[in-house]
Design a protein around this nucleic acid. Structure first.
Length: 371
DNA sequence: AATGGCAACAACCGCAGGGAT
DNA sequence: TATCCCTGCGGTTGTTGCCAT
């Protein structure tokens, strides 16, 4: 029985509301990477007297890729009887020498009906990016917005492709800039658009970010800062993430994100988005839920500092040609067509978050340390 | 043809949350 | 209330296949 893949607004809000406690727990117990603590040993001997009891008998459990026979067994059983609410006991019933968790994962990520693999569309790319910006690496929530996609799939896709698209473009720009000793130039764009092969899925391992397809966000209010043509994309990203503008004389080369997260009541930013998604939502909980993970901030920070000057490749997060750039033009309307088909859960969330941040910046500078 | 490097994907691991007892 | 057990999640590693040399 496949899970509900298209949650309603209410259920999505519920999901968001459930984020914070988990996040706090995660942050509080962020552990060292396995390679720093202990090697990933295939534990043949398990200590049953200390620590956590193993979920299954590791010695009698098969690991590695699933065979077609195993797949068939598992699928046939679940389709006929369901999981029975107990994954641990399931492999024994079927006669599979697999861990229950492994069975669950195999079913959810591969055998479950209506699963899509590979071939992520540009729309899906942007949905993933948008949600990643909004909520960080909450892959299960992101997956819930992409019918047929699994969190594992999306996670892999992000780690292997999307992230590299950004980083790869950053490096390219950085190199070009180093060669010229100047800032971003118009020919950068024409070079990309004139070379469609590099953006194709097939082949290129040094792909560039595809042509932006996000809508231009209308803030519905005077936007002194963002309508300033001198406002760099860097500034926009910094503000979007709750940091400060690089035009701020106090801006330093330190991470613009992490200190702010630790000291700024960032969730205030999300007031508007909460009420927009569901007016009845408890905004306090929502605000708490929408805290951006520190790890995400650090990651974006790393991207930024790869090339602290030029961030045009991240324009996809804001809209074609930027939010208020003069040359938004036709690309914007085209992208609007694409985005009109996207789940309304996603776009308003990002847009209103952005709005809220602007508001926060202009109305409550004290919260951003801009006093 | 052989080989090394890399990318993509599948799968595993450990932790935290939450329900059941 | 405390404890146990299961599930869900995110991070990470292992495996496979492709490509360049």
């Amino acid at each position: 029985m496949p899970m509900e893949r298209l949650p309603s607004h209410a259920s999505f809000v519920q999901l968001l509301l459930s984020l914070q406690p988990q996040q706090q727990a995660k942050e509080g117990s962020r552990r060292e990477p396995p390679h720093l603590t202990k090697p990933r040993v295939l534990k043949e001997t398990t200590n049953t007297t200390m620590g956590r009891a193993p979920c299954c008998d590791k010695a009698n459990v098969k690991k590695g890729p699933w065979s077609p026979e195993e797949d068939a067994k598992l699928k046939a059983y679940i389709e006929q009887y369901g999981t029975g609410g107990n994954w641990i006991a399931l492999p024994q019933k079927i006669g599979l020498k697999r861990c229950g968790k492994s069975c669950r994962l195999r079913w959810l990520n591969y055998l479950r009906p209506n699963i899509k693999h590979g071939g992520f569309s540009e729309e899906e790319d942007h949905i993933i990016c948008s949600l990643y910006i909004s909520i960080g690496s909450r892959w299960s929530i992101i997956a819930a917005q992409l019918p047929g996609r699994t969190d594992n799939d999306i996670k892999n896709y992000w780690n292997t492709r999307l992230k590299k698209k950004l980083l790869g473009k950053q490096r390219k720009d950085h190199q070009q800039q180093a060669r010229r000793g100047g800032g971003p130039k118009q020919e950068d764009r024409s070079d990309e658009s004139g070379n469609p092969a590099v953006a194709g899925e097939g082949g290129s391992r040094s792909t560039y970010w595809p042509e932006p397809a996000m809508p231009v966000y209308s803030t519905g209010q005077p936007d002194h800062h963002l309508n300033n043509n001198h406002a760099s994309t860097t500034d926009r990203l910094l503000m979007m993430l709750g940091g400060r503008s690089s035009n701020d004389s106090n801006a330093s080369h330190q991470s613009p994100f992490i200190p702010q997260y630790s000291s700024v009541p960032l969730p205030q930013i999300y007031n508007n988005s909460a009420s927009l998604i569901n007016p009845s939502v408890n905004t306090t909980s929502f605000k708490e839920a929408m805290q951006v993970p520190h790890r995400f901030a650090a990651e974006v920070d790393e991207m930024l500092h790869c090339n602290p000057v030029k961030l045009e490749s991240l324009d996809c997060f804001y809209g074609a040609g930027g939010i208020s750039d003069e040359h938004q033009g036709t690309t914007t309307s085209e992208s609007m067509n694409i985005w009109s088909e996207v789940s309304p859960l996603i776009y308003p969330n990002v847009v209103t978050s952005y709005q809220g941040m602007q508001q926060c910046l202009f109305e409550e500078p004290v919260h951003l340390g801009m006093q």
